[in-house]
Design a protein around this nucleic acid. Structure first.
Length: 742
DNA sequence: TCATACCGGGG
DNA sequence: GTGTACGGTATGA
């Protein structure tokens, strides 16, 4: 490599070769590159040679058959060692290497190539498959069906003898020749299951593009196992979902079905079957399972396209395989490779990983100013606060002497604004719109991780710098404090502030223009590149605890945030009550709150609620043997429920809906059995009070709370009518009088 | 009781 | 030759 200081190359690499869809490389310096010609969509397979390399921190006693180049600068990793043409790095040298990348990454770093140049996401050939099995564990279960979605969108279902089904899957993949294979939890379920069954049955799993090369495990010590196959990228939509939700935090859970529903990808007539009943249903109604499995692969294709664009865009920048960029965290997975490539491109030595010096890492600020009910709410926040502070105050890793991280952040922020503008300018639904939006999402991800890269502990990232990270959070707390102080000085009531954003209530007389004006006035007081933005306005808010609140939009929509208000395990009747009661509360209808309570209690006591409404979803963590051993010592509802309805076989990981029966035993909710409604009414009445009604306590004085939620028929006990009760807002905690911010 | 280990997902 | 986080529950001293 010739030294270069071109900053564009730090971000994009430098080799313009278009259309790379997969790379397979070996330690001997042989690389196979599959490319899709952007103009025609045709696939070409090319062989290339590269010189395998590692970086060392010393050259003492190196064998003579390697080539050493010394790098410049103060870094400890200063010996760039390449193998002689056509040979691998000798194993003795490889073992000493402080930086030794996978062969594919060596190839991409040294050539400056990246995946997908000039290619649109929809030009990729993507295929999806989904196994239907008799259970979760491959040791004692088998595959009875595989649903397949071809790149064309055509779906089919393979059924029959397990061995034959696996052979036909391999044949399908070979015939369709996809660049990418996708499924939800592909790496955690389908591939391990498939690999195990194929091994037991002696079926070769040649899913890749190299003849005779089977699916194999990517070695990884700590992390869960990953499979690789040459020539195709294995993409798990669960990774994309988790990456999405890490920032968005708006998914109820990460399962395929709920994600598909959340994004409007599920059809009206979609078939749903409880996981542990799929095989049983198959035996009585196979057509239903065929529809179910087909919907699965269709939804996976939709989710992959909707959320996969970011990883696709990252693969155009970072020198790693697409599948690695899809499953890695952005700090070690994207930023580190970019930094390594930039330093080596410049001929500069790299720093070694180093443990911190013991300085503790300080975090963000979180303030709860008031709890209860407030009206005319405004949310203002600083988009990308931490990277903005890094740019504004030039805070970067001390050992990044070339300033690459800050240069990358600068470029990513600027390029992202351009991508957002280009997306807006492109026609809705066009390839160009999709590509630019994905690029923007990818850049946001990397920019927002730049701080995490700095703060990473235990020598996790190469340039980690806890002092720089602390300086970022210190500036962040300072900025949040300034925002709160200046907003309060302009007559608003502060409610909650967290890291980079603040909720506040404005006086009754204010218009939206007034709200926007104070935000923009305070924005004017912040450092350049740090911008306070108007993020939303709401009719009312119930502030419960830090990070736990409910908002009512001016359109009448109720938004619940935080674990106190949304939990996947909550009993449906309690959730329904909470939604209804908070809706009435924020509408100012306290009588309606009481009605919600009384009617919920009433329908519980009259057993008008179906058992499903009081049941909760439980994941079984013990198998039958283990539970029966411990049963006498401690009885657990879920297992007792299974035993009570005659089920003695289940496996770890099964999910069941259980409830407490009148007799104190447990019951299992089964959609195929008539509902007995024999639930323990008083227990669920207590649950309603203790875990759901209590979420409304902050909205009232203690006395009024007693009035609103008195036992039905006892409402006059306190001598006050419910109609006279008003919701309250209470200043709380250390900043109760907002003294620090006034 | 508190600390830690483990899970999320898939049939 | 690594590598998410984070907030929950389950388990063990």
């Amino acid at each position: 490599m010739e030294p270069s200081l071109n900053e564009d190359e730090w971000l994009w690499g430098w080799d313009p070769t278009p259309g790379i869809v997969s790379v397979w490389a070996e330690g001997t310096g042989r690389a196979v590159v599959w490319r899709r010609i952007p103009e025609t969509g045709a696939l070409v397979r090319e062989e290339a040679r590269f010189r395998p390399w590692v970086v060392l921190d010393s050259v003492e006693g190196l064998p003579a058959d390697v080539v050493v180049r010394e790098l410049d600068g103060p870094g400890e990793l200063r010996y760039f060692v390449t193998a002689v043409d056509g040979r691998a790095i000798p194993s003795g040298v490889r073992e000493r290497a402080v930086l030794a990348l996978s062969p594919e990454e060596q190839y991409l770093v040294s050539t400056g190539r990246t995946y997908f140049r000039d290619l649109a996401f929809d030009q990729l050939r993507r295929m999806q498959f989904d196994l239907e099995t008799t259970g979760l564990t491959p040791e004692d279960n088998r595959i009875f069906m595989i649903a397949v979605r071809e790149p064309s969108g055509d779906c089919s279902v393979l059924e029959g003898e397990e061995e034959e089904v696996i052979r036909r899957l391999v044949e399908c993949v070979r015939a369709a020749d996809p660049d990418v294979i996708e499924n939800h939890n592909l790496q955690g379920f389908d591939l391990p299951f498939l690999e195990h069954r194929a091994r037991v049955l002696g079926v070769p799993l040649a899913l890749g593009r190299m003849p005779g090369m089977a699916l194999r495990e990517r070695p990884s010590r700590r992390k869960r196992m990953r499979f690789v196959t040459p020539g195709r990228e294995l993409i798990d939509t669960l990774d994309a979902v988790m990456r999405y939700d890490f920032a968005a935090r708006d998914l109820p859970d990460h399962g395929l079905k709920s994600v598909a529903r959340h994004f409007g990808l599920a059809t009206e007539d979609r078939e749903y079957i409880q996981g542990d009943r799929i095989f049983a249903v198959y035996q009585s109604d196979p057509e239903r399972v065929r529809r179910y499995a087909t919907s699965d692969v269709q939804e996976v294709a939709g989710v992959a396209r909707m959320l996969g664009g970011a990883a696709f865009a990252l693969a155009r920048m970072a020198p790693r395989r697409y599948e690695r960029l899809a499953d890695a965290g952005a700090a070690t997975g994207v930023i580190d490779p970019l930094l390594v490539r930039a330093y080596l491109r410049m001929g500069k030595a790299l720093p070694a990983h180093r443990e911190g010096d013991g300085t503790p890492h300080s975090g963000a600020a979180l303030h709860l100013f008031a709890s209860g009910v407030a009206r005319r709410i405004v949310k203002a926040d600083v988009a990308s606060l931490y990277p903005s502070l890094m740019r504004a105050y030039r805070i970067g890793p001390a050992r990044d002497h070339m300033g690459v991280l800050l240069a990358l952040v600068d470029r990513l922020v600027e390029r992202r604004l351009a991508a957002k503008a280009a997306a807006r300018a492109a026609a809705a639904g066009s390839d160009e719109r999709f590509t630019q939006e994905a690029l923007s999402a990818a850049m946001k991800l990397v920019v927002n991780t730049a701080y995490g890269y700095l703060a990473a502990g235990d020598g996790l990232t190469r340039f980690a710098d806890v002092h720089a990270a602390n300086e970022v959070t210190r500036r962040g707390r300072e900025t949040l404090g300034l925002m709160c102080r200046e907003l309060a000085a302009r007559g608003v009531t502060l409610l909650e502030a967290d890291t980079d954003g603040v909720y506040f209530a404005v006086p009754e007389s204010w218009t939206e223009a007034d709200e926007r004006r104070v935000v923009s006035e305070v924005d004017g007081l912040l450092p350049p590149l740090v911008h306070l933005e108007f993020d939303g306005r709401y009719a009312a808010m119930l502030s419960h605890e830090p990070k736990n609140y409910a908002l009512l939009t001016y359109g009448g929509e109720l938004l619940l945030r935080g674990v106190a208000f949304r939990s996947s395990r909550a009993e449906p009747f309690g959730e329904a009550f909470l939604r209804r009661a908070i809706g009435r509360l924020l509408a100012g209808d306290i009588v309606g709150v009481r009605e919600a309570y009384c009617e919920t209690l009433d329908s519980l006591r009259r057993r008008e609620l179906p058992t499903f409404a009081v049941s909760s979803r439980v994941r079984l963590t013990k198998g039958p043997e283990r539970y029966l051993e411990a049963r006498e010592a401690r009885r657990e509802l879920a297992y007792e429920a299974l035993l009570a309805c005659g089920r003695t076989a289940w496996s770890v990981g099964d999910k069941v809906r259980v409830y407490r029966t009148q007799s104190g035993a447990g019951g299992v909710v089964d959609e195929d059995v008539a509902d007995k409604r024999d639930y323990d009414v008083e227990r669920y009445a207590r649950l309603l009070r203790d875990t759901f009604v209590s979420r409304l306590a902050r909205a009232f004085t203690a006395e009024d709370f007693g009035v609103v939620f008195a036992e039905p028929g006892q409402m006059s006990l306190f001598g006050k009518e419910v109609g006279a009760v008003r919701a309250v807002l209470t200043r709380v905690g250390e900043f109760g009088d907002q003294g620090e911010f006034r």
